[in-house]
Design a protein around this nucleic acid. Structure first.
Ligand SMILES: [Mn+2]
Ligand SMILES: [Mn+2]
Ligand SMILES: [Zn+2]
Ligand SMILES: [Zn+2]
Lengths: 169, 169
DNA sequence: TGCTTAGTGAAAATGGTTTTCATTATTAAT
DNA sequence: ATTAATAATGAAAACCATTTTCACTAAGCA
């Protein structure tokens, strides 16, 4: 099952079919079939820049293809993460989040998680100033741990504005 | 149930009983009872610097107090997080991790998560160089989002040494 | 010492995710 | 185009960390 995805990788969104062609080639190159559910799920991810949960994707997909099951969504997402087409994040809210890998979208993510009410605040707008230092960190990590960084998330735990009212600490 | 924990907070580990006294005072100050399970769970957390899961703590506690149930471990940990005595982390491995709040232990955490084999590599030794920039980030976040940071974790997703062998990307 | 009720533990429920397995559909060979 | 081989699918069941329920227990106070 686990295969290398390094052989004959076509250039991104070139040739007939645009992104479709790129994706199809990528699947074929890894020895996987390019099925309808996989196309539809990739399309859904391609149509947004949000961080969708498996259920989010399932519901979106269900509108056009009601026959696609949640199981297939999970399996496809796992595969997409494996071949590097999709990023998987854990924001600490009890469900995984998925996002299509794009050149234009930053790989850095930043969230604030309230330990009192559990609310998660997206602080991605803070990333810009972080890009440079993340680059440096990635290089150090790659050397010290022989680890190839794909994407990154920073979570700050603490008290949100509402929950910190009236508390001293 | 949810109470402010700001009233008459005794200084850390002062008075008779050392840490015990400090903890007891902290509980009383919040209107909570200082029960045996809570003492034992705090003792267990105090005896290690690892990031323990609820089950880890349950098993450790079970050796001396077999009558303490897993439910109580979960409930106690939630309370300890609420009153700020314990930090709760989500390292993305499907279970929460807990750590006693200490002055000597840094609040910053760093993990490398392999998207292929799922292995999580602790890169906490990398924190030292991060302290300064984390301070700056915290200040900015506190202002912009009115958020009080307690602790922080940075996760890098990618391929570990074993899994990146033979792959181009 | 006895009251009040916060706290406890066993069992059941919850909810996101994974596994199972019979069926379907993609791909390559004919 | 037809067929064969098998990868992929979907419904249902299983999984597993965590939460809820509820009858019972014990901490703290008068
Ligand atoms: Mn993003
Ligand atoms: Mn730590
Ligand atoms: Zn809050
Ligand atoms: Zn790996």
């Amino acid at each position: 099952m686990q295969q290398s995805y390094s052989k004959k990788m076509p250039p991104r969104r070139s040739g007939p079919g645009g992104a479709k062609g790129w994706w199809r080639g990528r699947f074929k190159g890894c020895g996987y079939r390019f099925t309808v559910p996989r196309q539809v799920i990739l399309d859904t991810l391609n149509r947004t820049s949000k961080h969708l949960s498996a259920e989010d994707i399932y519901l979106a997909v269900h509108r056009t293809c009601p026959n696609i099951g949640l199981t297939t969504v999970y399996r496809t997402l796992e595969l997409l993460v494996q071949i590097g087409l999709v990023f998987k994040f854990d924001f600490g809210d009890g469900r995984a989040r998925y996002e299509l890998s794009r050149e234009t979208h930053p790989r850095e993510h930043c969230y604030l998680v309230c330990i009192s009410c559990g609310r998660a605040i997206n602080a991605d707008d803070f990333r810009e100033k972080e890009t440079e230092r993340v680059k440096q960190i990635e290089e150090t990590i790659a050397k010290r741990y022989n680890f190839r960084v794909r994407n990154q998330i920073t979570q700050f735990y603490g008290l949100c504005g509402k929950c910190s009212k009236g508390k001293v600490i």
